[in-house]
Design a protein around this nucleic acid. Structure first.
Lengths: 179, 179
DNA sequence: AAATGCACTTGATATTTATCAAGTAATGCT
DNA sequence: AGCATTACTTGATAAATATCAAGTGCATTT
């Protein structure tokens, strides 16, 4: 990308800082922004009838996060997004996003490829989810994404895997014992 | 899309017919094609150490199917793809796909948007998978995708939901009894 | 029409995971 | 440093789901 393009792309975004525990998006609101994480750590999740949180995604430096459906459709968001660690973001609105796609074909391509990669990783997580035991899921996550396991609090990892914190605690114990 | 573009796009694809139970792709081979389903029904799945199949995706008229990772990277496929019903497909190779993206920006856009939608539906399936009971998963699938539940054999639906055929059979029984 | 093979069902039991309750360790706040 | 809050662990028990084994019904083949 040349300097001119870089400047143009940058002009579509606005910076935003978020303190730990602050919301970027709350369920029910329209998701106005797609966020690029420059610094820090965010999560998206939903909350069920029993007030249990279910992690959809974590996003740190270099990752994108939003409620994709709400962002694109304008419908109320199904998910919450908040900061697990203080964060610095670059935000883009849908009109700016669409404009950018048209003005900078390179970005259209960038996002098509980004989305491809996202699909591939979601497919893997899905297959883990439907085919592995709790322990296998944890071990595979640890193997495929060690930074996540290291950086994210344990209860959130449990939620991400679809198991209870107690079960994860016990699994970790047996893994240590096996060594 | 004008006639010229349509003809150009069409020229990148080659047709293929598949009989029921025939493979389009076998685990370990490179996935050479991205397939568009004109007619019929396909599935992608993997097989674990215990020879149990785990459904990743079903694709019927108007859907696309491939092992996305293998298709893009050239690495051996992790999944099998075969026909549940006799099928007619349009196949495109990666070089043709890339060429088409460059020659027809409209298609770049089409796939970016297609991938967005794919991500949204995978996210929903993932959240169902990590947050619902077996019965809730089945009911939600039935509600969100009645054609799938009607058209796909029950054992494959069970696998798609990450439960055993026996459990699904019992769940269906209790649902009927409740009515 | 009889025979074979699948898909689905049903039953008994085992295993995995969740729930509830209490404890201990770690962290944040003033 | 001391107190409060939150995160994690552990134990006892309950609930959900898997496994294994037979059986039934239905369709396909001969």
């Amino acid at each position: 990308m040349n300097e001119e393009e870089k400047a143009l792309v940058k002009s579509y975004f606005s910076p935003k800082k978020l303190r730990k525990k602050q919301y970027l998006l709350q369920e029910g609101d329209a998701c106005k922004y797609l966020a690029f994480v420059e610094q820090g750590l965010l999560r998206s999740y939903n909350v069920d009838d029993k007030a249990v949180e279910h992690m959809l995604q974590f996003a740190w430096e270099g990752w994108w996060i939003s409620d994709t459906y709400s962002f694109l459709s304008g419908e109320p968001a199904a998910y919450n997004i908040d900061a697990i660690e203080d964060a610095e973001l670059l935000l883009i609105t849908l009109p700016h996003f669409e404009e950018m796609m048209l003005q900078v074909p390179r970005m259209e391509r960038y996002f098509r490829i980004l989305f491809q990669k996202n699909i591939i990783s979601k497919e893997r997580r899905l297959l883990s989810s439907i085919s592995l035991t709790a322990e296998e899921k944890y071990l595979r996550l640890q193997h495929s994404n060690p930074e996540l396991v290291q950086r994210i609090p344990q209860q959130l990892i449990a939620s991400y895997l679809g198991i209870t914190p107690e079960t994860l605690s016990r699994i970790r114990k047996t893994i240590v014992q096996k060594k």
